[in-house]
Design a protein around this nucleic acid. Structure first.
Lengths: 214, 214
DNA sequence: GTCTATAGCATGATAGAC
DNA sequence: GTCTATCATGCTATAGAC
């Protein structure tokens, strides 16, 4: 009774463990046995709560996409009210990236863990996982591309889509390979610093977009 | 006797099949059995020629890295002789990207297949594979960063490393997810076109780098 | 809701005949 | 150099007792 508030629901406990493992090693490389062991339950307990393995992934998406997209749309609304086009573009890019690093909900680990999991999933190419990814995010992304277009009179939508595509690739690669940038710069940079990564992503993408508007 | 020139060496035949499969689905998701079946041999024949599974990957790297890096250094040497800094930067970026798409050797499939395999490997995070990746390419990359630095007086090396890091992420993401850009732009763009992808990568990265030089 | 037990199958690797 | 046969292990998923 005294520990009722501390005792996490088993179903949620399994999701936490699975999310941590998926964000470290991807989907197929993580076994139900390992999830069960780290969650302190037996394998059949995992499938009891979430059906099959892809059901675990669907549940993780379910609890993240809604608050993350809501936060993005909220920040996007604020950004669109900035009059100066260059400043507005910066705010739009930050509105897209911030929720990917810091979750708006109280889910532990912030958004970085979830975003890194998505990066690994996008590379794995599992057909069932790809279906979950696509339907969850492309719709929100289109709204951002519309907002970016309004900052760049004369730029073609096709070019903007390519730049946005590159932004996502750069974001994912940074989360997947955080140690690589330290190796190349001889240890002077650490990509673990989220704020630095966001700033670099924003300024690089800003420059690549501004160049499209004559 | 008559077909001696047509009969490919079994060892090479296995490498061709493995490379095609690894570039489609990554390393761990491809089984020795599938490689053997598509190569028309039995499983034990694969391990006879290349030792264990990681040995196949090492052999694939062995036959690609040398010609690809040689071609890069050759094109880089030509680029560095261009006097105008902005034009030189464009040439340097193309010197980095072109060998990643079109191999200099006569290996079938061009460089795209090998580069896509590297993209998938970088996301998979297999420790043994990571070791092979790192030692093969970071050295060449450093030479390119030096050349880029010379085009951008006043820019910090750290900022340049970040931009180059983003370029690799954008390249990999484009090769991993070629259909996504078509979906976002409502079918007006196809990322299958290598020349378009190279052009977009070059101009986006060029703009992000030029912005660093005051 | 949690457990034990196991079915049914795929995997990487190796031994040994030819 | 190529084959058959097999080992030891891992996997997802399910049945059924409590």
């Amino acid at each position: 009774m005294r520990n009722a508030a501390l005792k996490a629901d088993t179903s949620l406990q399994i999701l936490d463990v699975a999310e941590a493992l998926f964000s470290e090693r991807g989907f197929s490389a993580v076994s139900l046995r390992e999830i069960a062991r780290q969650a302190g339950v037996v394998v059949s307990n995992v499938t009891y709560h979430h059906g099959d393995k892809i059901g675990i992934l669907a549940a993780i998406y379910d609890r993240h996409t809604r608050p993350m997209n809501a936060r993005r749309i909220e920040l996007l609304g604020e950004a669109r009210r900035i009059p100066d086009r260059a400043d507005r573009l910066t705010a739009i890019l930050r509105a897209y990236l911030l929720p990917a690093f810091t979750s708006s909900s109280d889910l532990m680990g912030g958004g970085t863990r979830f975003t890194r999991m998505r990066a690994l999933l996008s590379a794995e190419g599992d057909p069932e996982a790809q279906r979950i990814i696509a339907q969850a995010f492309d719709q929100t992304t289109s709204q951002f591309i519309d907002a970016i277009s309004e900052c760049l009179p004369g730029a073609s939508r096709g070019d903007i889509v390519w730049r946005a595509h590159f932004l996502l690739g750069a974001l994912y690669y940074t989360l997947i390979n955080p140690e690589r940038i330290g190796r190349l710069s001889k240890g002077q940079i650490t990509a673990d610093d989220n704020e630095t990564a966001i700033g670099q992503l924003v300024s690089a993408t800003h420059a690549s977009l501004i160049a499209l508007s004559p």
